[in-house]
């Protein structure tokens, strides 16, 4: 049978859920960031699938949109890791559940 749009959507949904679960359950800040990355990638995949199987004039704008998502994701990871470093420096730990205290 032909590889249609549904195949990619199912794949994207599965990937999103795995990323979501990782983001929720991991104890390490970097682990959470990995989860978030996976979720973003899943969204990109579904977007590109739509652009391929949708009407042509909509295809270009979705690809531009995906470029922006990738840029934002990169910026987000950079700032997230910098935050993790600062948290480590003050709390000597970056495990998410041990830094529950918002201290001034």
């Amino acid at each position: 049978m032909i590889i249609g749009l549904e195949h990619y959507l199912v794949l994207g949904a599965l990937l999103f859920c795995i990323g979501f679960f990782i983001a929720l359950s991991k104890k390490n800040a970097v682990g959470v960031l990995i989860g978030v990355e996976l979720m973003l990638n899943a969204v990109n995949l579904t977007l590109i699938a739509f652009s391929r199987f949708g009407a042509t004039e909509v295809a270009l704008s979705t690809q531009v949109f995906v470029v922006f998502i990738i840029a934002v994701a990169a910026a987000e990871v950079a700032v997230g890791l910098a935050l993790a470093l600062v948290v480590y420096r003050n709390r000597q730990t970056i495990s998410v559940d041990r830094t529950t205290l918002l201290k001034g």
Binding site: K27, Q92, D97, R98, K103
Partner: peptide
């Protein structure tokens, strides 16, 4: 004092060595 529950088995044990660098 900081109210952190002690459950991760890899908690930081032991004292910090004398010759620590700036960022620990």
């Amino acid at each position: 004092r900081l109210g952190i529950q002690e459950d991760s088995h890899l908690a930081m044990q032991g004292t910090i060595e004398a010759l620590t660098t700036g960022d620990g």
